[in-house]
Design a protein around this nucleic acid. Structure first.
Length: 254
DNA sequence: ATGGTGGCCCGGCCA
C-alpha cells in the first residue's frame, strides 16, 4: 500500500492541489497536517467522492490533522490515547487496511528558550506513550507527519547556519531517537542514505530554488512494515507551481 | 541575513 504524509498549510487554501495530487498519485492512505479548519469545515464529502474515507481532528485557525484512506477507517482515536489530552489538534490515529496509522503535527518549538520548546519535548515523550498504547513494536504501524525535527545534519541545507535553532537541537534529536528506540525506522532515511533530501522549504527568500530546506516530514514504521517497504520518495514536484504548500508530500510503499 | 512570504482573517500571530 502507498502511505503518504503532507503538511498542506491550510486545507482550504490547498484543496485544489490536494485533489490534483490524490488523483495523480492515487495513494491509499494520506496523513494531512495543518488543515487549519474546524471539523465542520473539513471537506469529507468531497474526499469521499474521490474514494477516501477520512477522520479529522481540527480546532479552526491553527493546527488540525487528518487521515484519508481508501482502505477504510477503523478505530479512530482523536488526540493522545495515553495521558492528558493535548489542548491543540495535533494527533489522530486510525487503522487502515490493517495498518495502524498515527498522523502527527509536532509542535514547532519556536526558540530554544521558549516555553513552546519545552511543550515540544514533552509532546514527543507523550507521543512515545501514545504509540506504545496503540501498538507493539512487532505490530503493523506507521507514525507519519511533520515532526519539526531534522533527524541529523544530512537533513538540513546548512548545519552551521542553524546552530542554536530549533529543529536541530540535541534534545529534539534525542527525543526523536527515543521514540525510534521503541521500535520505529525512518523509512526514507533507511532507503536513501544521501544528504540533502528535503521535505520543507521556507516560503521566504526563494529558499526552494536555492535548495535551502530541511527534512522534517517523516514516515516512521515498525520493523515488519519497514522490512516490507522497498520504495519511498519525497515528491518535490508538489512544492512547485501555483500556490504550493511549503512542505512536499512524503510517500512510502509498504 | 533579525529580513523575507504566505496562511489565518484584516492587526498581528504563527510557521
Amino acid at each position: 500500500m502507498l502511505v503518504a504524509t503532507w503538511n498542506v498549510n491550510s486545507l482550504k487554501a490547498r484543496m485544489p492541489r490536494v485533489v490534483a495530487w490524490l488523483e495523480e498519485v492515487q495513494p491509499d492512505v494520506v496523513c494531512l497536517q495543518e488543515t487549519k479548519m474546524t471539523d465542520e469545515a473539513f471537506p469529507s464529502a468531497e474526499l469521499l467522492a474521490l474514494g477516501y474515507d477520512s477522520v479529522h481532528f481540527g480546532q479552526g485557525r491553527w493546527n488540525g490533522v487528518a487521515i484519508l484512506s481508501r482502505l477504510g477507517i477503523e478505530r479512530p482515536v482523536v488526540n493522545f490515547a495515553a495521558g492528558a489530552p493535548d489542548p491543540e489538534a495535533r494527533i489522530v490515529t486510525a487503522t487502515c487496511g490493517g495498518l495502524v496509522v498515527v498522523c502527527v503535527y509536532v509542535p514547532n518549538g519556536r526558540a530554544l528558550d521558549h516555553e513552546h520548546y519545552q511543550y515540544k519535548l514533552r509532546w514527543m515523550r507523550q507521543l512515545r506513550d501514545h504509540v506504545a498504547a496503540v501498538s507493539e513494536p512487532d505490530g503493523d504501524l506507521v507514525v507519519a507527519g511533520d515532526f519539526n525535527i531534522a533527524p541529523d545534519d544530512r537533513d538540513v541545507w546548512d548545519p552551521a547556519a542553524l546552530e542554536g535553532s530549533t529543529h536541530v537541537s540535541a534534545a529534539e534529536r534525542q527525543a526523536l531517537a527515543s521514540l525510534c528506540d521503541w521500535g520505529l525506522v525512518d523509512v526514507v532515511r533507511a532507503q536513501h542514505p544521501e544528504p540533502r533530501i528535503f521535505s520543507w522549504w521556507d516560503y521566504r527568500d526563494g529558499s526552494f530554488h536555492k535548495g535551502h530546506g530541511m527534512r522534517i516530514d517523516l514516515v516512521l514504521a515498525t520493523g515488519p512494515v519497514a522490512s516490507r517497504s522497498a520504495w519511498s520518495v519525497v515528491d518535490r514536484n508538489a512544492r512547485k507551481g501555483e500556490q504550493p504548500s511549503d512542505h512536499a508530500p512524503v510517500a512510502v510503499l509498504c
